[in-house]
Design a binder for these strands. Structure first.
Lengths: 240, 240
DNA sequence: CCTTGGAATTGGTCTGACATCTTAGCATTT
DNA sequence: AAATGCTAAGATGTCAGACCAATTCCAAGG
């Protein structure tokens, strides 16, 4: 039986479910309501402390939470900065991948990329608007110009593919592939820097564009496979 | 204020010697050296504190780090438990996905699954060993038995597909799809529970098995597409 | 105008204390 | 002997205060 215990207030300070969850939600909520964009600085820990009425350690652990998720970045003496805008509706899907030898990692990620990138190009071929197509062509032209003048085309190659991902009108493709590229940059970006790669993969980018322009999903898949085959050759060459 | 930074470089210089990084590495190192398995309990915070010779707040923030990455789980009053074994060689790839309406999330994740699952089944068809095939068939048989007796086959359906992913001999496929399933369970698991789904997708599982048994990658892709088409129907039906 | 120094700000860490929850062990009762 | 109830130890959760280290800002001085 529960007599109205007078020693404890009726309204408890919400110990029901993890306070940590509340704080992380509050932080995401603040980012959303304050319209913070990537690069913006968050309030100082001591400000958030008094604003949310929690201890500093709680704030710091919430910051560590988003830091681990790659959403924010802390700079000692300067502040904490937003890398990607978040809100309470943001879903976080952390992947933990056990890696073996370098060659295995490269080939395994390549297999996954084959699945995702081919599908992205197929969807882009089906769903692209005329506006998307123009953007893709602009990036392709820029890529070809740089390739002719400098021999390599790292950033322009990336921009071209990103334009295709955006043409899918499915943000997941871009977020997935961009994050994969960033995570495995140390591994798979090197082949892209080889002038060899740009030269050999060069013709397939134009044909890929043509396939997307013609709304030919199967052809888009074929051309993407050819590009990734060049990548595979480089990986096997590099780690021999 | 400060001038808006033009754009963040792809790779940014790591803060010289981050103590936090050292502690998280040390924690991952301990998990590896102690041969901890999923479900095992980690030493208490105060033990780790003195073992690693750092303050408790530092330990807690490192724990929060791995907690955000879904690697460990803390139970108040009990301890911190390992969900997935990690080591210093474990690569963490956190994805932050901005979700819109439920229907969009479902269809967008389905497009990505189409890419990954089709590729996984194709790779499985090419790389599967006889031992893999036996495992797949066992899971298929179990699934059919349960389907006939109970009408639904949620866990068994999952086990069947996991067996296929393992047959790729590429751990990334299983880790990716398992994590996606876990993250979006609240959204996409419901269609799987419909007896309707089990009935309509039933025949394609046997044909998918046959394609993998025949090492016919293209056929495996076709059958996977058929299964996902049933899923798509359910999604559109559910959110109408 | 530019440089330079110091003060203010901010994240990083440690210590200590208390609250709350879980668990295991002991004592009691059945 | 088995089931039950209670207490105490141990664990995480949280707060507070202090200090360190790095950065930033601004005013004094060249």
């Amino acid at each position: 039986m529960k007599a109205p215990s007078s020693d404890r207030p009726i309204i408890r300070p919400l110990p029901a479910i993890d306070r940590a969850r509340q704080v992380t939600d509050a932080l995401a909520d603040y980012v959303q309501s304050a319209r913070l964009k990537a690069g913006d600085r968050l309030p100082a820990e001591r400000e958030l402390m008094s604003a949310l009425m929690v201890g500093r350690s709680t704030i710091r652990e919430a910051i560590r939470h988003f830091q681990a998720l790659g959403v924010i970045e802390t700079r000692k003496g300067s502040g904490t900065y937003l890398l990607k805008p978040v809100s309470k509706a943001t879903i976080h899907m952390p992947l933990s991948l056990d890696t073996g030898h370098l060659r295995d990692v490269l080939l395994q990620t390549l297999e996954v990329r084959r699945g995702i990138e081919c599908e992205a190009c197929m969807v882009a071929a089906r769903k692209r608007t005329d506006k998307d197509l123009i953007l893709i062509e602009q990036n392709l032209d820029a890529m070809e110009r740089v390739h002719i003048s400098k021999g390599t085309s790292g950033p322009e190659d990336l921009a071209f593919h990103l334009a295709i991902y955006d043409a899918t009108h499915n943000p997941l493709f871009r977020q997935l592939l961009e994050q994969m590229r960033e995570t495995f940059w140390q591994f798979w970006e090197h082949p892209f820097e080889r002038e060899d790669f740009a030269r050999r993969s060069f013709p397939f980018h134009r044909t890929l564009y043509n396939a997307i322009a013609a709304r030919n999903a199967e052809a888009a898949r074929e051309e993407t496979l050819k590009i990734l085959e060049v990548v595979e050759e480089d990986i096997k060459e590099m780690s021999k």
